[in-house]
């Protein structure tokens, strides 16, 4: 399979990328290409122009910034997974990046590309939502910060505008808080049939779900049950409340509803014992 024809432009800077997005018909950003190129080969995506931002210098980094960690949008999954800073201060992000795809995919795929793609079966968006991360977008009007809760708006849809470039992902330092990301898939490299992220917080936990609806979700009913004193097993029984999982080759909606309760209990036990 070969993608349909498109124009190809290399952006030398974020400003140039924004300008190209504005001046070209149906333009799309190319970072590592590991979500976009497969979609283009299948004709699910058919952009008129690809604006390659993969060569922009200075957008691949992991650094301390204020109370949290700032991750450049072009940081590859491999570099997120092996970042000492993330392992120490926000281990769930490093761990989850190491669970994406396979080594070859992690050598090319970037955190910004994965997040901008807005796939509800993708691992990192669910973890970022759980962490109340912030996404930094730069557009014609300058820079703005978008809360993860406002960022994922639908299947393959995000709050990014047509000329926005996602430039940075900001996550909190977790201190000693326990965490877990559990993902169940049929084969090693598959997308999550269901994924559950849990981060201990204020005696309870924040819980996020992957592949349980059109966007990553927070399991609010689980979080409320924990806050009201329920133990992990009792709270996890609420994990599918408000979720709208779909049925596909990996599992039926009913199976996902069952699986999410099991994985939530295990994730809570792990996070709350940490």
């Amino acid at each position: 399979m070969i993608p349909a024809e498109f124009e190809y432009e290399v952006a030398g800077s974020v400003d140039e990328a924004i300008e190209l997005l504005g001046s070209r018909e149906d333009a799309k950003l190319l970072a590592g290409g590991h979500s976009l190129i497969p979609a283009m080969k299948l004709r699910i995506a058919r952009p008129g122009t690809l604006v390659d931002i993969g060569r922009i210098a200075g957008l691949s980094y992991v650094r301390e910034d204020g109370d949290g960690i700032a991750i450049g949008a072009l940081t590859r999954h491999q570099d997120v997974a092996t970042s000492e800073l993330l392992r120490e201060h926000c281990g769930i992000v490093a761990h989850t990046a190491g669970e994406i795809g396979d080594p070859q995919v992690r050598h090319r795929g970037t955190i910004g590309g994965s997040v901008s793609h807005g796939d509800p079966a993708s691992d990192l968006p669910g973890v970022l939502l759980t962490l109340d991360a912030e996404l930094v977008a730069t557009g014609p009007g300058g820079e703005r910060r978008i809360a993860a809760a406002d960022f994922f708006t639908g299947v393959f849809e995000t709050a990014l505008g047509p000329q926005d470039v996602l430039t940075e992902i900001r996550v909190p330092s977790l201190g000693g808080a326990g965490w877990a990301y559990l993902k169940f898939s049929r084969r090693a490299q598959d997308w999550a049939t269901v994924g559950v992220a849990a981060v201990a917080s204020n005696g309870g936990a924040k819980v996020g779900l992957v592949s349980m609806g059109a966007t990553p979700l927070r399991a609010s009913a689980v979080e409320q049950a924990l806050a009201s004193g329920a133990d992990a097993a009792a709270a996890a029984e609420h994990a599918d409340e408000g979720a709208e999982p779909s049925s596909d080759v990996a599992g039926s909606a009913d199976y996902r509803r069952h699986l999410v309760r099991v994985l939530t209990r295990r994730a809570l036990e792990q996070a709350l014992s940490g």
Binding site: Y8, Q104, R108
Partner: peptide, 26 residues
Amino acid sequence: DTSSCGSCTVLLDGESVKSCTLLAVQ
């Protein structure tokens, strides 16, 4: 041809990548 099987794996700057999911221009 869908970046799953790895038979197209080559090294790009020394690291394994799937050459069916990379444009030559990249």
